[in-house]
């Protein structure tokens, strides 16, 4: 570094150093970050159904520091039939659990939009647990051009 302040280029280099430094290199985090256990704990070991939940993410994310994400779960959101909780898992982030969203019938509709960090190209999973304990899942593969160093 040439001491000209913290430039965008340095920020990008720092991000690259993070990617290499975390878990010793691309590809290894997937095996060691424990995302499968997190998902299994969330679904209580049940096999989630791949319907009734939509995870929207861009196929290509130029900036892994800010990836727009939308999740919608189909539900009438009544006291007996509503979405209880949604988990978002980035399978190749150093910390795979990205967010949890807890809903009550007062939400009226189970829909959230936010922005997440992705350290590198990877599959992202959204799973929902309903009031009756049943679970749903959706997955998206995202190609990340510049990884988010803060993931």
């Amino acid at each position: 570094m040439t001491g000209t302040g913290f430039t965008r280029r340095q920020a990008l280099l720092a991000g690259a150093a993070f990617v290499l430094g975390a878990g010793t290199g691309p590809g290894t985090a997937r095996a060691t970050n424990g995302w499968q256990a997190a998902l299994s704990a969330f679904t209580d070991g049940l096999q989630p159904v791949a319907s009734g939940i939509t995870l929207d993410l861009p196929e290509i994310a130029e900036n892994g520091n800010m990836v727009p994400m939308t999740i919608r779960v189909e539900s009438p959101m009544t006291p007996d039939d509503h979405v209880a909780e949604v988990i978002v898992i980035a399978t190749d982030n150093p910390e795979p659990e990205v967010s949890r969203f807890r809903f009550t019938p007062l939400a009226g509709r189970a829909e959230v939009v936010t922005r997440i960090r992705l350290a590198r190209s990877q599959e992202v999973i959204a799973a929902a647990r309903m009031a009756d304990g049943s679970t749903r899942i959706d997955r998206r593969q995202v190609s990340v051009i510049v990884g988010g160093c803060g993931a």
């Binding site: 520091n65 800010m66 990836v67 978002v88 980035a90 982030n93 910390e95 795979p96 659990e97 990205v98 967010s99 949890r100 969203f101 807890r102 939400a107 009226g108 509709r109 189970a110 829909e111 959230v112 939009v113 936010t114 922005r115 997440i116 960090r117 992705l118 988010g148 803060g150 993931a151």
Partner: peptide, 16 residues
Amino acid sequence: WELRPGVAANPYLQFR
């Protein structure tokens, strides 16, 4: 909303 480090800076949220 339970946020983790994987949430982007300046957290934005849209919900119902």
